[in-house]
Write a protein that binds this DNA or RNA. Structure first.
Lengths: 245, 245
DNA sequence: CACCTATATTGATATATATCAATGAGGATT
DNA sequence: AATCCTCATTGATATATATCAATATAGGTG
């Protein structure tokens, strides 16, 4: 097993480099997640079929519309999945270790319906989608777990749609700040490794508007922003803003 | 097998009435759909466990937040599934025969994450969700088909989110009109059995705005509206509006 | 260190959209 | 036929939000 960096270099000879040994699936904390119901021999199948890739911040992992031969497991760093819409992007989610990127296209036409790229320097394991689908057919517990995860994703998207379509900007930014603090960085003063544009793409507004709302929140003492470090000072008030839209 | 009308009458004695015989699953065209991969004995299991209910237009099939013991198959009429958000509803989809309503809650906490109600007088078959999940575990072809349908639903939702968040009102109304004409009523002069409020809830705007856009389209000769009958006159121009947002 | 580029910030303005209020039309009920 | 009620329509107005343009800042690079 090797880590292969697909650096988007101008020199094609550098496209596959920095090979390094990685741990195997059995040692990986991934196995406690969606893979928890796999038998050891099944986990071994995945271990043999997978390969690990590293991405620099900003690099594209896959593009919307392209074939989807791999199931992606993010093992370090931070990635975003986003739909490329009419002129601007909508970020569906940030993906951190250990979480998975499996698009709905896997069971439809083997195309990606969204793009993915690395926000921070990241590594990921790629597993052949056919092996994945084979295990779903053969192991009902694994299938149940897979469907459960797809369902959780759908529920998350429902919340997101309601936030995006029924709340105004202040409420949407509040939602995204909670998402970052509670689900992604999991700490309160947190270092936003995403850009302001990403913040805007998460909350469905222009970059300028996102910045302005952040400034207002700062002026009202709800939070502080120093560079990319954001601290929520008044959780209650921010929650209130999230709920009143 | 009986058809039971759960009419929301003031008289509780009338709650279960109008019992009538229905065809069984083997004769039902449902079996060509998601059930196409079931063995005859499995189809028979469903046939014995299901029961058929009829709803009057406007009646609620289930409410967001309530337990989700049944998988719903719409066999006649037209239903809508919608999220009850902050003050207003967002219609996720219209469901016509023969199509299915299975929410993501089935695999998470057995709760509904959206509500469903009948738009037209409708009938539906209800099947115990546990039987459904059991068949998914036991029949990989059925599981594959189920996951495929969930995936198609997710892809549909992606398109919808992009329309709702990145297009302005004219584009969104155009999208909804194509949805109604191509996917729901499947004819060109079609009789809109949904209300203007539903039209607004489908396109994420106020009822007044939806009506105004319709009026503009009428004035520009893109379509005609007589009462609830809508005819698209200039498909090309409407497509153009959909695409330029 | 100076430069350069990408990103962040701010302000001024235009515009898309919701809201409010009033009126109109159709179906049901008496 | 008259009443009532829901739904559809229209107009006037307020406001949320995007856009455009200018400036500031910071990180990387020679």
């Amino acid at each position: 097993m090797y880590i292969i960096s697909l650096t988007q270099s101008k020199n094609p000879l550098l496209m596959v480099n920095k090979l390094q040994h990685s741990t195997n699936c059995v040692d990986c904390k991934c196995k406690y997640s969606i893979f928890k119901n796999l038998h050891p021999f099944e986990l071994d199948l995945i271990n043999n079929a997978r390969f690990q890739v590293s991405y620099k911040a900003g690099e594209i992992i896959f593009k919307q519309g392209t074939p989807s031969p791999y199931f992606v497991c993010v093992t370090s760093g931070l990635a975003k999945i986003y739909i490329e819409g009419y002129g601007k992007n909508l970020i569906l989610a940030l993906v951190k270790p250990v979480d998975y990127i499996f698009g709905p296209g896997i069971y439809v036409d083997n195309r990606h319906y969204y793009s993915a790229s690395a926000v921070e320097d990241s590594t990921a394991c790629l597993v052949d989608v056919n092996l994945f689908k084979k295990l779903i057919r053969e192991n009902p517990d694994f299938a149940d777990e897979f469907i459960k995860r797809v369902s959780l994703q759908a529920i998350f998207n429902f919340d997101q749609v309601i936030s995006l379509t029924q709340k105004q900007m202040h409420g949407r930014i509040a939602d995204v700040i909670f998402y970052l603090s509670d689900k992604i960085y999991c700490q309160n003063p947190f270092n936003m490794t995403i850009s302001r544009q990403d913040l805007a793409d998460l909350s469905g507004m222009s970059k300028e508007s996102a910045i302005r709302i952040l400034k207002e929140f700062k002026e009202e003492g709800i939070l502080t922003v120093h560079g990319n470090t954001l601290e929520i000072l008044n959780t209650k008030q921010l929650r209130q803003i999230s709920e009143t839209g």
